[in-house]
Design a protein around this nucleic acid. Structure first.
Lengths: 233, 233
DNA sequence: TTTGTTATTTGCGCTGGCGCAACGACAGAA
DNA sequence: TTCTGTCGTTGCGCCAGCGCAAATAACAAA
């Protein structure tokens, strides 16, 4: 596979980069293709590279000592991840990056980005934008986790993921498809696969979603918003 | 009250700033003194100023529509807060800042910091450092919230707060004091005042802490670490 | 079509932790 | 010292959600 440097401008952090700079990043980068379930890096590894997802889907997750997983973020094409090493000295990845399907990413040395940032203020600004976005999302999710009941948390998770990785279904107007298993949803909303299954079954009975194997189709987003705000029943 | 510009270097983000720059920040800043329980700003307000806490203690919190609170961070002297406005256009504060005791803060226009950052790379680097620190902490807390049982969460919260705002007790060697009410601990660890009270009572019986009114003294940090890792009982 | 594998569903029992209510303890004001 | 308001404690009952186990469904490979 060959990368077209100009395409890299679709990466948010590179939005304002010059063509020559994009070329530099493309040349400096190493292509890494991995299978579904494989890992780009593990929590605790030295954060020597940052990544840009080129094909496939992946997720960032943390594991506690008993092996329970939590999904921090689901990644799609052109998303940058693992970029902390470009900011902090001797940083370790704070999360693990695992492919959800066969995926390819461009791996670039963190130090290179760090060097480029010294003379390209826009890289700074845009990276800061990405970071503050993460902060706001994590704060919000933390609050939800601490204060909301499961059904509402699952609704909030599904709606958030719809915005981030949902695929608009052709033909139908407002329908969005999420290619995620019950397990993925459970790990993202902080509950169990059983509870997610029961809640989705209920929503399906009420006509809010279509729940399939490793797939959820949102038929009535507004209904989910109502649930997420506690305005139903 | 008068600020000594050189003192501002104790603010992490200003660590590498020139004396003249510190003077500029000090001159540009407005002193705001507020009573215990009052607010520096509310979630949703336009983030026109960022703050530096000069005296007292404060907390950053979010509230959901039913009024339930979650504490995101407890702030002490020389901490910068509300700085998102210096990064994002037309940003709104994502959290509310409330004083835990009579407090004074220096309020400086976000735009001024934004301007300064254009020509002072170290401000960029240090602010990025602060932001990534937040991200890592929030990710960790999110995972704990999603996977750990209450007692362990409370232990993790107490230990984390000890590192951030604990006051070493004179005389005794390893003892650290936390000036926090049961309510504060409950809102920080995502549980209720009742559960915190019961857990602290238990720890007190086991000699791990001294639990007083709006105050917790850690007598045996290692014991708490054991609990937080599930190695006790 | 068959077979094996993996994802999902659902009944069932259990319990961690919530939340009310009543009481107790402490601090500051008068 | 007394009073008042706030903070903390604890008994009690309850239930949301967990998690096992067994059945079923969906898909892939042969």
């Amino acid at each position: 596979m060959k990368i077209n440097p100009a395409e890299l401008r679709r990466v948010n952090v590179f939005r304002d980069a010059a063509d020559e700079d994009l070329k530099l990043f493309a040349e400096k980068g190493i292509l890494r293709s991995i299978e579904e379930g494989e890992f780009f890096f593990f929590q605790g590894d030295p954060a020597k590279y940052f990544y840009i997802l080129l094909t496939g889907r992946a997720k960032l997750l943390q594991t506690n000592q008993t092996g329970q997983q939590v999904n921090l973020r689901t990644l799609t094409k052109w998303e940058m991840f693992g970029a902390l090493g470009a900011v902090r000295e001797d940083a370790l990845y704070p999360a693990t990056a695992q492919a959800l399907e066969p995926s390819t990413a461009l791996a670039i040395e963190s130090n290179f980005l760090k060097e480029m940032m010294k003379t390209r203020p826009h890289l700074n600004v845009n990276l800061m934008q990405l970071m503050t976005g993460y902060i706001m999302e994590m704060q919000e999710r933390y609050r939800e986790m601490a204060t909301e009941r499961v059904e509402r948390r699952i609704a909030l998770t599904v709606l958030r993921l719809a915005g981030q990785i949902g695929r608009r279904l052709e033909g139908a107007e407002m329908m969005v498809e999420l290619p995620l298993s019950r397990q993925d949803l459970a790990e993202t909303s902080g509950t169990t696969i059983f509870t997610v299954s029961r809640v989705l079954a209920d929503w399906e009975r009420r006509g809010l979603v279509d729940a399939g194997r490793e797939r959820v189709v949102i038929r009535n987003p507004h209904g989910l918003v109502q649930i997420s705000e506690g305005l139903d029943k």
